[in-house]
Design a protein around this nucleic acid. Structure first.
Length: 444
RNA sequence: GGUCCCAUCGUCUAACGGCUAGGACAUCAGGUUUUCAUCCUGGAAAUCGGGGUUCGAUUCCCCGUGGGAUCACCA
């Protein structure tokens, strides 16, 4: 048996969880789970100024939402200073590091690593061997003082202490890898396997950032995207299963994942593709789950009205929403456009709207009366879209479908554009449908 | 600028050196449809350029061009 795989989630709690962040964590997750390994959760919070506990808490919550579980931690580097201090002292004692006199703020000293100025070769799963001359780095700083360590030092110590076997991270870390390898060698530890992921970029090909729009998970959730869709999209940015499948749950991704199928080139984030992936994940949802999400995106007013008639919302969801939504926030837009209004209130009579082409209102009214008579014959318990359509289809074909269906749809909804009349009639129910179709009575 | 990385349709990508370069999203056209949405069918659309190696390069090598990352007492 080979060595147990251990990967890590090492975010810095200096802000909200970022898409690029999540992608790195996701790949660490997929690789570890695929190989029955473990994942260590740790916060790299040595920057005392910028790190905040609240960010750490929010990040943990995001991981939970995404389903990215870990096996150890969360650990906080800020709580391990004794260990780092010991390592720094050891490095100094062994001549690998030294205290330098200068310091930015003019006070105190700084700890520098004594660079052996050698060439270091990084063996990377994605890119092969990358050789870099470390002379360029000079004697880089590893700590502000013996008890105030910096990133490169803490990463290396934690990876060694945690027995991390695979470091999977963004390509932006590639040039700092040789520095870390130098430290690992000085500490006499084993160098992990590296995999540097291609960057996710915006339309301008630059690393995805705030200026490109939404980048935080919470923003995507607010826009009505499903966490599993975000995960799916991120996995496909820089990786593919080797065949033409595209829709995967997290579990399915674990099954298919392989470092060998990671791309080298940067990938542009696409909302259009996300929409498509999201829609397909929405269709995988159970009806109960679907409704739960959809109702969240309604205005309070509309939500209350639907809550008062759960059966109505069931019908709307299964016959209208599933057909029309790409993401759940689309219901917010529909709501704003008053596209649910007709469900609760009978729209006023608009003679122009109801007249099909140049047939005029009288024809419309006559056809509506006939349609009502036909529908009268469908019993309450047979009131389905299929049955409604069957009763009207052939007959309306004889006198012109538009002449019947257009007035019917508009008299029920009051809208220029709407779902088809059969669906609308089904949702409204038999009684209400007939009331709306029989306009003659009230006008005379 | 130094160092490093990368390069297939607009976008994400497939193609152990060998079919007409395949799929998805987007787009366009046609069809179904009273409308919108959906759905069906079809189309257009790519190997950055130049040299090699080879019987044969998207694929391997070199040069160029382009893009990106990184050069902190941030992570």
């Amino acid at each position: 048996m080979t060595q147990q795989v251990i990967t890590r989630f090492p975010p810095s709690p200096t802000g909200l969880m970022h898409i690029g962040n999540i992608r790195s964590l996701l790949f660490n997750y997929l690789y570890a789970r695929k190989h029955n390994g473990e994942i260590v959760m740790r916060f790299e919070d040595t920057d005392r100024e910028r790190s905040k506990q609240e960010y750490a808490d929010l990040m943990l919550k995001d991981l939970e939402i995404l389903g990215l579980t870990y096996d150890q931690g969360p650990f906080y580097q800020s709580q391990k200073t004794d260990r780092y201090t010991a390592v720094i002292k050891q490095l100094i004692d062994e001549g690998f590091a030294y205290e330098a006199e200068e310091s930015n703020d003019g006070s105190g000293k700084v700890i520098r690593f004594k660079n052996p100025n050698t060439e270091v070769t990084v063996i990377d799963c994605v890119r092969g061997e990358i050789t870099i001359d470390t002379t360029d780095f000079g004697d880089f700083v590893i700590a502000r003082s013996v008890d105030n360590p910096l990133y490169h030092l803490t990463v290396v110590v934690d990876d060694i202490d945690g027995g991390i076997t695979h470091v999977i991270r963004g390509e932006d870390h590639i040039t700092s890898t040789p520095r870390q390898i130098l430290l690992i060698q000085a500490l006499g530890a084993q160098v992990p396997v590296y995999a540097h992921l291609p960057l996710i970029v915006g339309d301008d090909k630059k690393k995805l950032g705030k200026r490109h729009g939404a980048v935080n998970l919470s923003q995507f959730l607010e826009m009505g995207y499903l966490p599993e869709a975000v995960v799916n999209q991120l996995a496909l940015l820089g990786w593919n299963p080797g065949d033409e499948r595209e829709i995967f749950s997290l579990e399915e991704l674990v099954q298919e994942f392989s470092l060998a199928r990671i791309q080298k080139g940067a990938a542009t984030f696409s909302y259009q593709k996300l929409d498509d992936i999201n829609k397909q994940h929405m269709l995988r949802l159970s009806e109960a789950n679907y409704k739960e999400h959809a109702i969240e995106f309604l205005s309070d007013d509309t939500r209350n009205r639907f809550n008062a008639d759960k059966r109505l919302f069931d019908k709307v969801t299964s016959s209208i929403l599933v057909e029309r939504l790409n993401k759940f926030s689309d219901v917010t837009q529909m709501d704003r456009d008053r596209e649910f209004e007709y469900l609760f209130e009978k729209p006023g009579i608009d003679e122009n709207l109801m007249s099909f082409k140049d047939e005029g209102f009288d024809t419309a009214r006559k056809n509506l009366a006939m349609a009502a008579d036909k529908l009268e014959q469908v019993s309450e318990d047979q009131w389905t879209i299929e049955n409604i359509k069957e009763v009207l289809w052939d007959w309306s074909g004889e006198i012109g479908r538009g002449s019947v269906l257009h007035p019917m749809r508009t008299v029920m909804t009051g809208m220029q554009r709407s779902p088809d009349p059969f669906t609308v009639a089904y949702v409204l129910g038999k009684k209400e449908t007939l009331v709306r179709l029989r306009i003659s009575n009230e006008n005379e």
